[in-house]
């Protein structure tokens, strides 16, 4: 495969100034992501995952290091990757339709054109008949579906998903995970997915990167060798149980070791 280092994070560190002291959020984080793969980042809370994402999204300049997409550095360049957060962040005064096409609106694409481009995916994400509604008329799960769709419609090849389903109940979360896998398999986006949930990481990812306690470093990188399409019952397979135990041990060590 020629594109194994499509998204490349190289020696990225970020220090924040906290009352005169430099506090390190992430330190010398390096990894490569192959084009079209689904990689989860797992780590204890406060390991600097969001800082890492803000750097990759071009919203935060790192203290050191580089982030490359293909052949170009995307440090400080916002709008190069799609970004989705735990909060749906839909604009309350815009309809769902106008919210999901926000990325296109910002690029000056006409509403009609943007809507036409969105139409096939609206159905796919289970949002049919909700286009004209305002966000407050939708359930949390539906709003998060809209946020996912907005991220997909940015048309970027790389999507950063920062605990996108963290606030949802178990059943809704499972539904959205299935939708995400479904859409990902069709569009073959490159997805970087932050989560606290080991099962979620196992169910969705090709690979899992484990970060250390703050300051975040790459602790381990594991491959999830499961056939696609994935189904929830695969979580009970012996191989996966072993992988899960391994992950749990790694994470627990991170929290307990000083």
């Amino acid at each position: 495969m020629p594109d194994v280092d499509y998204l490349s994070v190289r020696g990225v560190s970020k220090q924040f100034d906290s009352g005169g002291n430099a506090v390190s959020a992430i330190e010398d984080v390096s990894f490569d992501i192959a084009r079209g793969s689904f990689v989860s980042i797992l780590g204890p809370s406060g390991c600097g995952k969001s800082t890492l994402f803000n750097v990759i999204a071009g919203l935060l300049p790192p203290t050191a290091g580089d982030v490359r997409l293909g052949d170009t550095s995307i440090i400080g360049k916002a709008g190069q990757v799609g970004y989705m957060l735990q909060k749906d962040l839909l604009l309350p005064w815009r309809t769902i339709e106008d919210n999901i096409t926000l990325g296109q609106t910002l690029r000056g694409i006409r509403k009609r054109t943007a809507r036409q481009a969105a139409a096939p995916l609206i159905d796919r994400c289970g949002l049919a008949h909700f286009e004209k509604k305002k966000p407050h008329q939708l359930s949390g799960g539906m709003r998060q579906r809209a946020a996912l769709l907005r991220t997909l419609l940015t048309g970027k090849d790389v999507l950063l998903l920062d605990e996108p389903f963290g606030a949802l109940d178990a059943i809704t979360r499972l539904q959205l995970q299935m939708t995400l896998i479904d859409v990902w398999q069709e569009t073959r986006k490159t997805i970087l997915f932050v989560t606290h949930d080991v099962d979620e990481a196992l169910l969705l990812s090709d690979e899992i990167i484990v970060l250390t306690q703050r300051p975040g470093r790459v602790r381990a990188r594991l491959t999830v060798d499961l056939p696609r399409p994935r189904t929830p019952d695969m979580l009970a397979s012996p191989d996966l149980m072993q992988l899960k135990a391994q992950l749990m041990t790694l994470l627990l060590q991170e929290v307990t070791e000083p």
Partner: peptide, 8 residues
């Protein structure tokens, strides 16, 4: 942040 990430 979201709007800037969308390239606004």
């Amino acid at each position: 942040t979201l709007l800037f990430s969308l390239g606004a």
